[in-house]
Design a binder for these strands. Sequence first.
DNA 1: TAACTGTTATACATATAATATAACAGATAA
DNA 2: TTATCTGTTATATTATATGTATAACAGTTA
Lengths: 131, 131
Amino acid sequence: MFIRLDFESDEPIYTQLIHQIIEGIAKKNLSPGDPLPSVRAMAADIGINLHTVNKAYQHLKQEGFILIHRQKGVVIHPDGVAKADAAYMKQVQKKLRPFVAESICRQVSEEEFLKQCQELFNEFKEEGEKK
Amino acid sequence: MFIRLDFESDEPIYTQLIHQIIEGIAKKNLSPGDPLPSVRAMAADIGINLHTVNKAYQHLKQEGFILIHRQKGVVIHPDGVAKADAAYMKQVQKKLRPFVAESICRQVSEEEFLKQCQELFNEFKEEGEKK
DNA sequence: TAACTGTTATACATATAATATAACAGATAA
DNA sequence: TTATCTGTTATATTATATGTATAACAGTTA
């Protein structure tokens, strides 16, 4: 797999795994219907416990990124991920809030902050176009 | 004080306190040199433990938002907060990354995402101009 | 039958979060 | 000089989160 974990990070392993898979979808390395390794295979592959992988999968399932068929295994959600609604955008703002506040304290201009976001969008877009 | 905590949130109390104070600085409700309540006064005021407040203050101190004089008490850093450097901006990008990735999965356009950031900047700016 | 799937249960170790007391050294005000 | 307030430190306890380790179960597939 394409998973890269940082075991020195403060960020929990299962959270890193969640983010990696979501990034994979954003970059279109993973497309609707694509299979993911079984919890045991993934765990063995990246050298962590089965339950840590399962925890990540359950989160991804609950948020609609993947489907878990008891028979067919784990796949990227065939219908695609649910589109953002007003509630989701509000949640995004809430999470971005502390970063904006601290940036203002550190005299980061609005333009410079937006540039950081744009760079990230470009990064995902370019990766997506390689496919 | 102007502190509002959500005891139902997943976000730890001391982290919420940190963010509230940083927001206060961003909105210029708190200016360089302004005093903050003692750990005991703050704790009693918002109904939490002294050590939880102390933990927040220590973080704010380490990141240069406040100064702690053994005599004079706690004050917003008189010299202002250190300006963002390249390392800080890199760190910001790293933290924004998961939000951008998930937004892309949910078909949030770059323009819409940037709009959310702009709204936050405007919110802080307007609050700051009230003073 | 054997090997695989997700799932569940139990147990354990460790770290973090939050609270509860208590005490210490230094400054300040009555 | 007391008394009170300051930040700081220490210790203990409780609860929750994280991660690992086994084991088992029900269902599918080769």
